[in-house]
Nucleic acid binder design. Sequence first.
DNA 1: TACAGTGATGTCATAACCTGACATCATCGG
DNA 2: CCGATGATGTCAGGTTATGACATCACTGTA
Lengths: 189, 189
Amino acid sequence: MGRWQPGSRERLEAAALALFSERGYDSTTVAEIAARAGLNERTFYRYFTDKREVLFDGGHFLEGFLTRSVAESPASAGPLDAIIAALEQAATEVFADRLAIARQRQTVIDANPELQERERSKMASIATALARTLRERGVGDPAASLAAETGLTVFRISFALWVAHENTRSLTELIKETMTDLRTITAGP
Amino acid sequence: MGRWQPGSRERLEAAALALFSERGYDSTTVAEIAARAGLNERTFYRYFTDKREVLFDGGHFLEGFLTRSVAESPASAGPLDAIIAALEQAATEVFADRLAIARQRQTVIDANPELQERERSKMASIATALARTLRERGVGDPAASLAAETGLTVFRISFALWVAHENTRSLTELIKETMTDLRTITAGP
DNA sequence: TACAGTGATGTCATAACCTGACATCATCGG
DNA sequence: CCGATGATGTCAGGTTATGACATCACTGTA
């Protein structure tokens, strides 16, 4: 073993989530997070652009997963259907096994407006990426943006229901239901 | 004349927009904004919770305008229709005369991720408020959230088209069109 | 007029966030 | 064994943001 343990990034993420859960986001300093990870404050900022970002690293993976999924969807599918299908795939392949951590994370985020802001931002970034993917598949504008944003809205609402403490249903199930609600609401008179 | 000129808040907002336009958001310090407004840095923070907020004060007014409008909408209207009607009313009564300032503001925001983040956050806050208003009018959940979030998505996309440099069409017109696109996209197979 | 109360602003000190510049040290290929 | 590379540490410093307290103009009232 040398000077550095491998997995600095993961250690920082774990340390941050633990500390944020224990004593809250505001009361935790970056120096403390780094110290618990056996690292220096300066090093923290080499991995994450700011203090919030340490909670949102997974977003990059999700974005890649979803864009790949949308890119591979059958050409016959409508844009919103392609988005929803990708989200359902993520629901089973990415999220299904991670309810406990998702809840812990969400508890931290729900307690802090700055973090909610960043979460929205991440969702928006994913929506932008998915809209681009749709455009590359020939979907026009603003249909592409609209489908991507709307799909993410459905996901966000479903996700909130999923992590709610009373809930026992699966994320996929909740996405399907929310999607049905959306169709009801948008159906013209 | 006494020690203070009236309208400190407005002066701070104007100074901030001007400085952000001139030399960018990052390169402008809070002390500079305050100085141009003839005030102290500490005083800036008495009016705005943080540096970004100085650009988003109008959001409070918009939120009030929209919730009032939705609260007064005819009971027969569907939830999404009520939201869209309120947004169209804001389009004519609030935004129509302010295209120039809206564009200047948007240029500043588009140049800085932190500001985009805050803008999203403001939209989300408005959506939350509108969802609450819908619930008070008997709309269930998640239909209320869904209608509010979807309506704001339509608005956001329409607004972006409106402030785009090439555009010559009215915001109301663009909202109607985007709404038509949404109905097309969500229409089942 | 005098003067106490109130509220807006200023001053000061300081913690935490974030960054640039440079130093240190382990690893790896030769 | 050595030099290149890359991850980490050290240090200095600017900016954001906040608490505590002081100052000054305006108000009402005796």
